Amino acid sequence: MGFKLLSKLLVYLTASIMAIASPLAFSVDSSGEYPTVSEIPVGEVRLYQIADGVWSHIATQSFDGAVYPSNGLIVRDGDELLLIDTAWGAKNTAALLAEIEKQIGLPVTRAVSTHFHDDRVGGVDVLRAAGVATYASPSTRRLAEVEGNEIPTHSLEGLSSSGDAVRFGPVELFYPGAAHSTDNLIVYVPSASVLYGGCAIYELSRTSAGNVADADLAEWPTSIERIQQHYPEAQFVIPGHGLPGGLDLLKHTTNVVKAHTNRSVVE
C-alpha cells in the first residue's frame, strides 16, 4: 500500500471513529477524501466538511520552486461564519470567499490569524475590503508590521502568557507558548472536538522541520505538551499544512522538532 493511500485511509478511519463516538456532533463529509496538494491548482481553494458547521479550507501556493498546501478553518456561528487564517495570499483568499459563498452561503463576518507569517495573514486586506472584521493577538499584529505583512485590524486580548485561553464565538483560542513562531495560536472547536494546530503542528508525513527561522526550538516541545494537557479530548487535529489526523500529530511534531534540534547540535 502506497504512503499517500495509507495517509488518506488514516484520515478516513479517524473521521469514521469520530462519527461513531459522537453521532450528534459529527456529520463528516462523505463526498470524498481530504484534498491534497496535487489536486488543488494554485489560485483555487477546496472546502472539506469535518463536522456539522465545521470545515477546513485548503489552498496551495508556490514557494521556492515548489507547491505547498495550506489549511485553515471555518466555523459556523449562528447565521454567520468565523474564518481562521487566510488562504495564503490575496488571490487565494478572494477564491476562498467565493467558494464559501458557493458552498455554504453564509457571510464571513470575523477572521482570526493564528500567527504573523504570510500563509496566515496574506489576504487580510481582501477580507477587510469584503467587510470582514480581522483579528490577531497584539504580538501577531506587531510582528506582521515588522515583517511588512498585512496586519489584522483588531487585537485579541488575554493571550499574552503561555497557557492563556479565551473564548471567541464558537471557538476557544489558546496560546501554548512559542513553537513554530513566538505568537502562534491554537484554535479548538469544543462542539466538535476539532483542534486546529496551525503551523505549530505537523502532518504525519512530514519528517523535516522546514521553516524554523522564527521558531523557538527549545520551547516548542513544552508548548505541545500544554496543548495535549489542555485538549486531551480532541479527536480531529488539523495541521497548518497537509493531512489531518488525531492527537498523534502532536507527538510526531515533537519528535521531528527534537530530531532537528539534535542534528543542529551535532553539526
Rank of each mutant, 00 (worst) to 15 (best):
Val166Lys: 09
Gln228Ile: 05
Phe3Pro: 04
Leu24Thr: 09
Arg263Glu: 09
Val187Asp: 03
His115Asn: 02
Ala144Pro: 04
Ala234Phe: 05
Ile58Trp: 09
Arg142Leu: 12
Ala259Ser: 13
Ala133Ser: 09
Ala90Phe: 14
Thr207Ile: 08
Leu243Gln: 10
Val189Lys: 00
Ser22Lys: 09
Pro221Cys: 12
Arg46Asp: 15
Glu172Leu: 06
Ser264Met: 12
Leu5Asp: 11
Asn262Thr: 07
Gly240Glu: 03
Pro107Trp: 05
Asp214His: 09
Lys102Trp: 15
Leu47Met: 15
Ile104Ala: 03
Gly177Trp: 01
His241Ile: 00
Ser62Ile: 07
Ser70His: 05
Arg120Ser: 10
Ala215Trp: 04
Arg226Asp: 04
Ile224Gly: 02
Ile58Ala: 10
Val146Asn: 07
Gly123Lys: 03
Glu219Gly: 11
Asn255Thr: 08
His115Ile: 00
Asp118Glu: 10
Val171Gly: 02
Leu47Lys: 01
Val187Tyr: 00
Arg110Ile: 08
Gly198Gln: 03
Tyr175Gly: 00
Thr93Trp: 00
Leu249Glu: 01
Gly43Lys: 08
Leu156Pro: 04
Glu101His: 15
Val212Asp: 10
Ala192Pro: 10
Glu33Cys: 14
Tyr12Asn: 05
Leu143Ala: 08
Ala165Tyr: 08
Glu233Arg: 14
Glu172Thr: 14
Ser30Ile: 11
Val126Ala: 07
Leu82Met: 11
Tyr231Asp: 01
Pro239Phe: 00
Val112Lys: 03
Arg141Tyr: 04
Ala25Gly: 10
Ile201Ala: 05
Lys251Thr: 10
Pro190Lys: 05
Ser38Cys: 14
Phe116Gly: 05
Trp88Thr: 00
Leu96Met: 14
Leu250Thr: 04
Gly240Asn: 03
Val237Lys: 00
Pro23Thr: 09
Ser208Glu: 10
Ile17Cys: 05
Ile40Cys: 14
Glu44Ala: 13
Glu39Met: 10
Leu217Gln: 06
Val54Phe: 03
Pro69Cys: 06
Ser70Trp: 01
Gly78Ala: 13
Pro152Thr: 10
Thr254Cys: 14
His180Thr: 01
Ile40Arg: 11
Glu150Tyr: 12
Gly105Trp: 07
Ala15Glu: 05
Leu127Gln: 02
Tyr34Trp: 07
Tyr188Glu: 00
His180Asn: 01
Ser27Pro: 07
His117Glu: 00
Arg142Cys: 12
Asn71Pro: 01
Ile84Phe: 14
Thr86Ile: 03
Gly242Leu: 02
His230Leu: 09
Gly246Lys: 08
Ala95Gln: 13
Glu233Phe: 14
Phe116Pro: 02
Ser162Leu: 08
Ser139Asn: 15
Ile50Ala: 13
Val42Cys: 08
Arg128Gln: 09
Asn71Phe: 00
Pro107Leu: 08
Val42His: 14
Glu172Arg: 04
Gly148Asn: 11
Val187Gln: 00
Leu185Pro: 03
Lys251Pro: 15
Phe26Asp: 14
Gly163Arg: 10
Leu96Cys: 04
Val67Leu: 12
Tyr231Thr: 02
Ser22Met: 08
Gly242Cys: 03
Asn211Arg: 07
Asn149Arg: 12
Ser264Thr: 12
Asn92Asp: 03
Ile151Cys: 07
Leu195Phe: 04
Glu147Leu: 07
Glu225Ser: 06
Tyr135Gly: 01
Leu10Asp: 06
Ala98His: 08
Val189Thr: 04
Trp220Thr: 00
Gly89Tyr: 04
Asp119Met: 01
His57Glu: 01
Gly158Ser: 14
Pro35Glu: 11
Pro244Gln: 06
Glu267Gln: 13
Glu44Gly: 12
Ala213Lys: 13
Leu195Tyr: 00
Ala144Cys: 09
Phe174His: 03
Arg206Lys: 09
Ile227Glu: 02
Pro170Cys: 04
Lys91Met: 13
Ile104Lys: 00
Gly246Cys: 04
Pro152Gly: 04
Lys102Thr: 11
Ile201Arg: 01
Val189Tyr: 06
Ile186Ser: 06
Asp164Gly: 11
Glu219Trp: 08
Gly131Thr: 14
Leu97Phe: 05
Asp216Trp: 10
Ile186His: 04
His154Thr: 14
Asp85Met: 00
Leu10Gly: 08
His252Gly: 04
Leu249Ala: 02
Val166Ala: 07
Thr207Leu: 09
Ser62Met: 15
